[in-house]
């Protein structure tokens, strides 16, 4: 693969994340090192408490490692302050949540544009981008609808459009199909496949096997460590311990 020459999208180097839960110290990620390559589509799986949510939060720069370093698109996050991390989120990362998490008082177009509001130097073509993305996810006719007027599947499409509006290096999805019926879930997964085909880097956290199997690669976690790495059919099957 020619990716080796390029900077990886997300690189975790010896990341440990500890929480204090009452009296106990919980180690959600334990000396975790991994690299997500550009254009790859990963499913992160594991039972609850395996650390997959923590991994996603660290990847999304909403949580900081207790120790170790995390590089997004080659930028080390260890020394960034809160504002710089926020700016990084608004420029390099796209989030898709299980419960869509649209902002109720904004319409579809505005919801898609939210990440751009928070950039220090927002692009001038933000609205045009948002319209194109709305069209891309099939909601061009509902731009002035409020989230409450949309179905779950439609809301998730808005959320995906929102995750793409800042042209992120990495799209993170947390149980993105968890609240949807199976038919709608398939539509959303198809959309992820399309995005992958377009060259997006996607990390999808799920505990559903059939969802995980749709991804290019599967990363299994257990107790904050890597349990297994399964390369998808298109790349050579094998494990990276």
């Amino acid at each position: 693969m020619s990716e080796a020459a390029r900077v990886p999208v997300a690189e975790l180097i010896g990341v440990t994340r500890e929480y204090r839960m009452g009296q106990n110290l919980v180690r959600a990620l334990d000396d975790f090192s991994f690299t997500f390559g550009r254009g790859e589509y990963w499913a992160v799986m594991g039972s609850s408490g395996s650390g997959k949510s923590t991994l996603l939060n660290v990847l999304g720069c909403v949580d900081r490692p207790t120790s170790g370093d995390y590089k997004v698109d080659g930028v080390s996050t260890a020394r960034l302050d809160d504002d710089e991390l926020s700016e990084l989120r608004s420029r390099k990362l796209g989030f898709v949540f299980q419960s869509y998490n649209l902002i109720p008082q904004l319409n579809v177009l505005e919801n898609i544009m939210v990440p751009l509001f928070y950039q220090d130097d927002p692009p001038d073509d933000g609205e045009e981008r948002a319209r194109k993305l709305a069209e891309r996810v099939g909601l061009a006719r509902r731009l002035d609808h409020r989230p409450a007027e949309l179905s779950g599947g439609q809301q998730q499409r808005v959320a995906i459009a929102r995750a793409l509006v800042n042209q992120p290096a990495l799209v993170l999805a947390d149980e993105a199909t968890g609240n949807l019926d199976s038919a709608t879930a398939l539509e959303i997964l198809d959309l992820f496949d399309e995005l992958h085909a377009e060259g997006r880097t996607i990390v999808l956290v799920t505990h559903e096997l059939d969802v995980g199997e749709r991804a290019q690669h599967v990363l299994r976690l257990k107790d904050g460590r890597i349990e297994s790495v399964a390369r998808g059919q298109r790349s050579a099957a094998g494990a990276r311990a």
Binding site: R89, L93, F95, I103, V114
Partner: peptide, 12 residues
């Protein structure tokens, strides 16, 4: 939380 995740800074 959503706004912060999407890049809102504290001052926002």
């Amino acid at each position: 939380g959503i706004r912060r995740a999407l890049g809102a800074k504290r001052h926002h």
